[in-house]
Design a protein around this nucleic acid. Sequence first.
DNA 1: TAGATTGTTAATCGATTAACAATC
DNA 2: TAGATTGTTAATCGATTAACAATC
Lengths: 214, 214
Amino acid sequence: MQKKHISKAVINRLPRYYRYLGDLLEKDVVRISSKELSEKMNVTASQIRQDLNNFGGFGQQGYGYNVEYLHTEIGKILGLDRKYNLIIIGAGNLGQALANYVDFERRGFFIKGIFDVNPKLVGLSIRGIEIRLIDELEEFLKVNQVDIAALTLPKAKAPKVASDLAKWGIKGIWNFAPTDLHLVENVIVENVHLAESLMKLSYKLSEQQYPSDK
Amino acid sequence: MQKKHISKAVINRLPRYYRYLGDLLEKDVVRISSKELSEKMNVTASQIRQDLNNFGGFGQQGYGYNVEYLHTEIGKILGLDRKYNLIIIGAGNLGQALANYVDFERRGFFIKGIFDVNPKLVGLSIRGIEIRLIDELEEFLKVNQVDIAALTLPKAKAPKVASDLAKWGIKGIWNFAPTDLHLVENVIVENVHLAESLMKLSYKLSEQQYPSDK
DNA sequence: TAGATTGTTAATCGATTAACAATC
DNA sequence: TAGATTGTTAATCGATTAACAATC
C-alpha cells in the first residue's frame, strides 16, 4: 500500500489537536464535532477533517468524534504510545531546567543522563540523575539505549557533539543551540530556537506600533 | 502608501536570515549573492529574493547583497534596533534559565524583574535581578515601563496572569505555558510549546522507523 | 425516518519556484 | 562593454476552504 505523504503543516498541527483533546478529556467531554472543535481552536472545521483524514476515518457521520478515541489515535500517530530514553548534553541553566521538567515523563520521555564539559558539575544530581563528564558519553551510549539527545550547549560546541552523537547511534536530536545542524540523513533534528522566537515577537510588536495603513 | 501584507511564512524565515548573515559577518564576509546564501541555508535563491523584496531592494544587480547592510536592515525589520524591557513571570527552572540567558541582552532584551507566587523565592537574586512576589506586579508595572512578559508558569495559572498583564498594559507575551492564551487584540502572543516540539520529534522518529513505502 | 456530521471531491487561495528583463 | 545577479512577473505547486454526497 502506498502511504500518503503527510505535509509538514499537518504534522505541526497534530500536537495542538492532541492538547485540545487532552483538555476536553479532562473535562469529561465524550464527543465533539469538527465544528465545535474548530470554534475552540480557531481553525476551520474543514481543515480538521482534512487533517484527520490523512490518517484514516476517526469519526462517525451524524455523531462527530469520540474524544478519548481520537486523543488516543493522535497519540499513536505522534508516537506517544511508546517510551523514549533521553539524555541532555549541556548542564547549564536550560539543560537543568529540562531535567527538572517532570511533565515529559508523563508523556513517556525518560531522562537517563546529563552530560557536561565542566568537571565541577560532575557528581551533582538533578532529580536523581547525576551529571557526568561528556568524555563518558560514548561509553554511556554503548551501555544504555538512548533515543533522543537534547542539546543545550553553546552554538560553537553543538556541531561536533551532534556529529558524535549521530556516529554513536542517536536517532533524534532536540536542538536548543542557535545553529542549524547538518547531519546524516537518518538522524532527525527538531530545533527550538528561543532567540528566533523572541525576534518574531519583537517583529510583531514593532509592526503593531507602526501599523500598516491598509 | 499602501503597505504590503507580509505573510507569516516570510516572517518566520527572517530570524534565520538574520542569524546566517550574523554568522557571515563574524567571518568577515563582505558580500553574498542570493545563490550562495541559498546553498548555505538550503532554500531556493528565488525565495530569498522574493522574501527580501517584500521589504525593499537591499541588493545590487551584478553584485549581490552587502552582508553588513543586509544584516542591519533585517535587524531593523525585526525591531532589533531598539531596546525592550522584559519581566519573567514564574521563577521555576525555566524562568530562572531564561533570566540567566545573557545572550538576550546582547540583542537588546533587558530583564527587569522576576515574579513568583512562592514567598520562599522572594529575595533571591538572579544576575542581580531579585525575585518578587507576584502580588507586587501591578504596582511594579505602574512604576516601570515593561514591554514584554515571559510566562514560565503552570498552565492553570497562565490565563489569569495573562489577562492581568494585558489589563496592566503589557504589549507582548512570550508564552511558555502549554496553553493558548486568548487575549485582547492589541496584545501580541508568541508561543514556545516545548512539549509540542518534543512530540514533533517523536512523530518524525516513529515515521522513520516505519518508513512509507513510496 | 430525519437530522447531523463525516469523509472526500472540487474550487479557491496563497506560497514557492522559474524565468527573464533591467541594471549594476 | 560583457558578465553577473538582482528585482519582478508569470507559472507551478501545494495547502486551505467550500461544497456535498454518503451514512450513521
